[in-house]
Amino acid sequence: MVLEKAILATITTNANKVTAGASIFICDDKEEMEKVAANLEAILDGISHALSDELYIIVKH
């Protein structure tokens, strides 16, 4: 089976919102979260999507 989409990383400011799965990056505030997400987007060649204000995921399309 070929996976067309996959969550490559999860970035959050609220550690309670996520458990295991893709790599999780826990940040102190929204600003740091956005920086990390922007970097990861470029590194992983995926798009960062906002699920809520405190939860971003990087998805490979």
Binding site: E34, A37, A38, S48, H49, A50, Y56, I57
Partner: peptide
């Protein structure tokens, strides 16, 4: 609209980062 990108009222995709 939040993270959702719209053309007219048609939803295109979710863009999370404010810079993007």
């Amino acid at each position: 609209d939040g993270a959702g990108l719209y053309v007219d009222n048609i939803y295109i995709m979710n863009i999370g980062l404010p810079i993007r």
